[in-house]
Each structure stands twice: as structure tokens, then as C-alpha cells.
Design a protein around this nucleic acid. Sequence first.
DNA 1: CTGTATCCTACCTGATACTG
DNA 2: CAGTATCAGGTAGGATACAG
Lengths: 124, 124
Amino acid sequence: MAKVTRKAAGPPRIRDGGAVREVLDRIGDKWSLLVVGTLRGGPMRFGELEKAIAGISQRMLTLTLKHLVEDGLVTRTAYAEVPPRVEYEVTELGRSLVPLVMALAEWAMANHEQIDAHRRKGSA
Amino acid sequence: MAKVTRKAAGPPRIRDGGAVREVLDRIGDKWSLLVVGTLRGGPMRFGELEKAIAGISQRMLTLTLKHLVEDGLVTRTAYAEVPPRVEYEVTELGRSLVPLVMALAEWAMANHEQIDAHRRKGSA
DNA sequence: CTGTATCCTACCTGATACTG
DNA sequence: CAGTATCAGGTAGGATACAG
């Protein structure tokens, strides 16, 4: 229970500074959002994710999935088979994040050319 | 539920692998989204941003702003005064990203407790 | 197939000093 | 005030090798 100590006429700021930072430290890393977005269509195996994301290292996929499972955004189901099969799937909580990820992805796809153009000319 | 015939129609993946990665490498870093979100209310000075974000180092604020300006998400306006005054403001493009940032921030605030709970119990 | 362990590099961080 | 420069220390991420 944090007391809200807002300035009377202060500038409109993200009135948190904590929660957002905290969560952004979790899902704001290089891969988490991409993994969550990739899992939006249903359960996927480790190898499938690795191929789908393409660019992620095995190590980072492992770590990212571990964190997502810890945070309750993804479930891990290991089947006692040979060869081993492990499936990952977004939880209810994770699924609630999917629309935001997709919105971000769409924004990225819609604007990456414009961003690239800006970067290239550098000096207008 | 019927079996999902992923094989036939190809797996449901983010059909890009490039643009999203590219943009996420830009704005998906630790600070960019936070800066953009902080600027949503109007122009702010360097020092204001530094205080508002609280936790960012001067170095990273400088770098992040530089990148955002390069990407065309933020404008930098220096006033030839003494003492110097520099204001940063989101561009049209940057403003189009604000709603997504805020949605993410709201999601973070709404769910960070649940995430924290998951993390803490660790083993269900 | 699904990870884990190790090494190595690049980058972030915080502090400090200095410039315009 | 608004940066730039630099250094020491930590951490994130990639590559590879190896294990269950």
C-alpha cells in the first residue's frame, strides 16, 4: 500500500515509477515479448520456438522461458517420452499480454520503414 | 477440440521475424519505452526526464534520447539561452507509440502483483 | 530433443571529472 | 543546465561443448 504523493499541478507522468520499471525489467528484455508473441497460436516445443524466433540463442531461449514460467506467463509441460518432448504455452496471464505484444508488433511492422528512413538520413 | 493442423497451413508465427526484431532492438531496450511514455504529456527538459524516470543514469538517458531522435520518435530543441535549455518532445510517430506504451504500463501495474506472487512461490 | 555449463565479449551502470 | 569522457565493476547475451 503505497501512499500516492502527487504534486498538485505536477506534469502528467507515469504515476508509478515502480511497477512499470519492475515489469519492464522482466518482460522488457530482448526476447520475452517475442517469445510470448510467438506462443500466441498455441503450445509449441522448444525446437519450434528456436526455429520460429530465429536469432535467439539456445541459452537465451532457455533462460527466457524459465523466467516466463517463473513469472506465471508461460507453462512448461514435459512429456516422459523418448525422445523428450516439452511444450510451452501461454497462461491466462500470458494470454492477456498477447494483444499488447501484437499491437507492438504491428506498430513495428507499420513503422519500421519510416524509422529506418529517419535513421539513414540522420541529418535532415 | 479438433486437432490443429499446423503442419498443413504452416505454424502460426509472427510473419516477419525481421521488422519486429529490428524495431524491438530499438525501442525494446530497457529505457526507450519508458522515455517515450514519460514524454507523452508534452515537452520536457533533460533534467526533468532524469528526475521523472529516476533510476536511469545520465549516460543512458543521453544515449536513449539520441537514439530516439535518430529514429524520429522524439525531437530535440535546444534554446540558445543561459543557462541552456533543451526540450524533448515526441514526434507524430512517437505519439503513435504512446498508447501502446501506456497499455503496457497499465498491464504492468495491473498484473505486477500476480507476477510477483508467481515468482515468490516459485514451486506451486 | 531439451537443456546445462563454460568461456568470452559487449554493453549497462554508477561515480566522477570536465566542457559549452 | 546539458551534456561528454572515462574508469571500474557487473551483467546480459552469443558460441560452443556437453549431458540427460
